[in-house]
Simulated assay, not measured.
Amino acid sequence: MTLQYDVRLIAPQQTLPLRKKVLKPFLSEEECVNPGDDLATTYHLGLFHSNQLVAISTYILESHPDFSAGFPYRLRGMATDETFRGQGFGQILVRHGVEFLKEKRCDLLWFNARIKAFPFYERLGFYYHGPLFEMKDIGPHKTMYKVLVPK
């Protein structure tokens, strides 16, 4: 069976309901806004299935102090609606985001991943960096990364 979907750029506000529902249910939608969401260099991607937004990801131009990169992006707010998990939509969206960033000449994509998402990102070819750390109200995380354009 072929998945029917459409990936496209969306407005920052369109990410907020899923960010709240999936990632930060203890916050209001307004509190789920990330610093940098409104920058011209920030990209918000949405995956639509049957005209319903089922997965989101945000890519913010941001360096990490431990990585040497010329044009690094940070993945923030990756979320797939629980109803649509396990169907491949999240992987499709991240792969699309990686290809999109490669076209922009991004050389490194990094993010802080929750423990339960480790296998998901490992399957997509991301690597771990540094120790496990705690994020208030959310739980343990580890930085993960992928080199997109070799130096």
Rank of each mutant, 00 (worst) to 15 (best):
Y5E: 11
Y5H: 14
Y5T: 08
V7H: 11
L9T: 14
I10H: 07
A11I: 15
P12M: 05
Q14E: 14
Q14D: 12
T15F: 10
T15S: 10
L18H: 00
K24C: 15
F26M: 11
S28R: 07
C32N: 06
V33W: 13
N34E: 14
P35H: 09
G36V: 02
D37S: 02
A40Y: 11
T41C: 05
T42F: 02
H44K: 02
F48L: 07
S50M: 15
V54M: 05
V54F: 04
I56R: 00
S57R: 15
S57E: 06
T58F: 04
Y59L: 15
Y59K: 05
Y59H: 10
E62R: 12
H64M: 09
H64L: 01
D66N: 12
S68C: 15
A69R: 00
F71E: 04
Y73G: 06
R74M: 10
L75E: 09
G77I: 00
M78N: 10
A79G: 05
E82C: 11
G86K: 04
G86T: 03
Q87R: 11
Q87W: 12
G88A: 01
I92W: 01
L93N: 00
E99R: 14
R105G: 09
D107N: 07
L109V: 05
N112C: 09
N112F: 15
R114P: 01
K116I: 14
F120W: 11
Y121F: 13
Y127F: 13
Y128G: 06
H129K: 14
G130C: 03
P131H: 12
F133Y: 11
M135N: 13
M135W: 14
K136W: 13
D137W: 06
D137C: 14
D137H: 08
G139T: 01
P140R: 07
H141L: 08
K142H: 06
K142P: 00
K142C: 05
V147Q: 06
V147L: 12
